[in-house]
Simulated scan of single mutants.
Amino acid sequence: MLLNDQVILITGAGGGLGGTAAIALAKQGAHIILLDKNIAKMEKVYDAIVEHGGPEPTMYPFDLAGANENDYQELADVVDRQYGSLQGLLHSAVDLSAYSPVANIRTQEWGHTLNVNLNAPFLLTRVLLPVLQKSQHASIVFTSDSSARNARAYSAAYGVSKIALEGFAKILAEEVEAGQKIRVNTLVPGPIDSPLRKKLYPAEDKSRLAAMNSLDEVYQYLFTDDSLGLNGQTIDAQTFQRR
C-alpha cells in the first residue's frame, strides 16, 4: 500500500482512463477525489474502488468548462479545509468535440475544447498549488496524446490543446523545481482500448490494443515515491519501464 494517507484528485474521473487511474491508485491505499460532471459515471468508479477494497473516495461533481474562477477557488478551499494538503493531481479530463477540418470548426466547439483540455488544467493547477505545496512531496501529471503532438490533420482544437498542454507542463516543472516538493510530468498513454480511442478510430481492430488497466503500473509509479526526482518529463506508457 504505497499510497496510504495520500490524497489524489483526478479530473475526468468518470471516464475510461480517469476511472482506471482512480482504481489503480486506490488499490495502493490512496484516497481519491473523483472530479467529473457526470455523476452516474463517477458512481460506477466509486463502487469499483470500494469493491476492490480501496479507501472510500470522495465525489465532487464539477463542470470544468462551465465553472468560473470562483468555482475553482471554492474547490481548492474545500480540499484544503477537508484534507489540509494534497499529494497528487491527475489531469485526465478530455474533450474531443472539435475533431474536424479547421474550415468546419465552429467557434463554440473550439472554445469548449480548449476550455476543458487547456484552460481547466491551468486554472485547477493554479488554485491547488498552495495545497500541493503543503505536502512533503506531491505529483502533478498531465495527460497528452502522441498523435496530437505530431500535429495531424483534423486534430485542430484537440491537437492544439495537447501541444499547448505539454508546453505548459514543462514551464510549470521549471518553476516548481527549485522548491523540490512538487514534480510535474506528462503521460502519453498511447494506443489503448479506451472510449476516446473508439471515438477517434471507430473502424480500428480494438482486439490488438492494450487494455486500460495496462496503465496501472505507470500511474502508480508517477504518484508513488518511486518517481521522486522525476520532473519535466514526458512518459510514453508504451515504452515505460520502472526505474
Rank of each mutant, 00 (worst) to 15 (best):
A13N: 10
G15Q: 06
G16H: 06
G16Q: 05
L17V: 12
L17R: 08
G18M: 03
G19L: 08
T20E: 14
A21K: 02
A21H: 09
I23V: 15
A24E: 12
L25S: 02
L25F: 10
Q28G: 00
G29I: 12
A30G: 04
H31Q: 14
I32Y: 06
I33N: 07
L34N: 08
L35C: 15
D36G: 10
D36H: 08
K37Y: 09
K37N: 12
A40Q: 14
A40F: 07
M42S: 08
M42Q: 15
E43Y: 08
E43G: 02
K44Y: 01
K44W: 00
V45G: 06
Y46W: 13
Y46N: 12
Y46P: 04
D47T: 12
A48E: 13
A48K: 15
I49R: 07
I49K: 08
E51S: 13
G53T: 06
G54Y: 06
P55Q: 10
E56P: 01
T58M: 07
T58W: 03
T58H: 06
M59L: 14
Y60G: 01
P61F: 01
D63V: 08
L64K: 11
G66S: 13
G66D: 07
A67W: 07
E69Y: 02
E69Q: 13
D71Q: 12
Y72K: 06
Y72H: 05
E74D: 14
L75A: 14
A76R: 05
A76S: 15
R81I: 11
Q82E: 14
Y83K: 05
Y83N: 04
G84Y: 14
G84E: 09
G84I: 12
S85A: 12
L86H: 05
Q87I: 04
Q87F: 03
G88H: 07
L89Y: 09
L90Y: 11
H91V: 10
S92R: 00
V94N: 06
D95A: 13
D95H: 09
L96D: 05
S97E: 12
S97P: 00
A98R: 04
A98H: 00
Y99A: 07
Y99I: 15
P101N: 06
P101A: 12
P101R: 11
V102G: 01
V102N: 03
V102L: 14
N104T: 08
I105W: 00
R106E: 15
W110L: 13
G111E: 13
H112L: 13
H112Y: 15
T113S: 12
L114A: 02
V116N: 02
V116I: 14
N117I: 03
N117T: 02
N117S: 09
N117Q: 08
F122M: 11
L123W: 07
T125C: 08
R126L: 04
R126S: 08
V127M: 10
V127I: 11
L128W: 13
L129V: 14
P130D: 04
V131Q: 00
K134L: 05
S135Q: 10
S135D: 05
S135Y: 13
H137D: 04
H137K: 15
A138E: 06
A138Q: 05
A138C: 09
F142D: 01
F142R: 06
T143M: 15
T143A: 07
T143V: 13
T143E: 07
S144V: 04
D145K: 04
